[in-house]
Amino acid sequence: MNLGVIKAYILKEIVELVRSKFIILVYLFPSMVILLFGYGIRMEVTHSRTVILDHDNSKLSTELISKFEHSKYFDTRVLNKPENEILKEMKKGKVDILIIIPESFEKRLLHGQKTEIGIFVDSSFPMRGTTMQSYAEGVIYNAAQSYMKNIPVKNLITINNRNLFNQSMRDENAIVPGLIGIILLVAPAILSALLIVKEKETGTIFNFYSSPAGKIDFLIAKLTPPFILHSANIFILFLWATYLFEVPFRGSFFIYWLSSEIYIIISVGIGLLVSVITRTQIVALVATIIITVIPGFLYSGILMPISSMVGSAYIEAHIFPVMYFNHIVYDCFLIGQGFSSEKNVLYFGVLIFYAFVLLSLGTLFMKKEMR
């Protein structure tokens, strides 16, 4: 590894980025995307993971549980655990809805007395939270009305609802953290792909072919500017999210920063692979957009929760790194479990694996010779 060669290449790239004004897009593009989509996306879900605590054990509560179990909107489990344990599972992302049927629920209704039922909803995604809440309320009222026949029950049952993690049900709290994952996937990949393909298109790649510089030196010099420049976007996007959109941040900033840096390495690795198979900047640009933007939106969890996907869509979502990174980002902003959550630790390990594999493949396929 020749540090002098690497330094010279890096300075050359930065000077060209400044001279061509392309460096403006490095920071303008991410900010424009988070502003446009952060304000523009407004989305109002099946197989919600539902836990029911039945403290009544009556005929009505059994009927109510049956309604949930036979609904395609809920994957229902009836447990006999303390409420706090279920809430801990919800905090770890294992439960979407907790329904608590109180004692004497049926008895109070039969006597015409008002009663209440508890619903705890994971509202990290407000649109999904609202939908799950309305479905649960509909099932409860329908089951009670069917059981009570002609006696109106809507005025007798009070739904004691609580939304967790995104209590205000703000769309920004769900959209903006997800946009960070998409932006940090797309922008570094485009820049890293263009910096290498530009050498092919203009013919200056022959300077590298004929120089004593090694392949590793060349790749480090080419990929370092995108990595360093977009590392600043980690902080810029964080400021946009917390101060402009007022998204709460409940987790560890160190975990957010470290995961983002590894994620940028993944993005740069994608750009490197694209640059290996393309020869013109326009082809590299289109290919990078197709590889990053479409999966980024479909499998980031912004438009549709991953848990609601089935079949090939569910498998594809686990192939792309954006799902793993966004899970950690949402945790950092809305939940705050950090590395105390086994799922976060697993997903962090998956990101490291992706970074290693993509860079290794790019280095392997990059040849220092004419084709």
Rank of each mutant, 00 (worst) to 15 (best):
M366C: 14
G129C: 05
A189Y: 07
K343V: 14
F22P: 00
F68G: 07
E116Q: 06
A313L: 15
F68I: 03
I277F: 13
L28F: 15
A144Y: 10
S267T: 00
A8D: 12
L79F: 13
V286F: 10
N57F: 06
A313Q: 12
K368Y: 04
Y263L: 00
P30W: 04
V268T: 05
D54C: 05
T50G: 09
N326Q: 06
S275T: 00
S48C: 12
G181A: 14
N233S: 14
L164E: 01
C332A: 10
L164R: 02
K59G: 00
V283L: 11
I302S: 03
S312R: 15
I265N: 04
S104T: 04
S123E: 00
L79N: 12
F165R: 01
T50A: 11
E369S: 15
V5H: 15
L194I: 10
K81V: 14
E44Q: 05
L364E: 08
F253S: 15
S341A: 09
I236F: 06
I262R: 04
F74C: 00
G301C: 02
S48E: 07
L229S: 03
V197K: 09
Y330V: 07
L195F: 05
K154R: 14
P248R: 07
I319H: 13
V345C: 06
Y39T: 15
M370R: 15
L364C: 10
D54S: 07
F235D: 08
P102E: 08
I23G: 01
M132I: 03
I205L: 12
I99Y: 11
F120H: 15
K154G: 13
S300E: 05
T46C: 00
V121L: 08
V322Q: 08
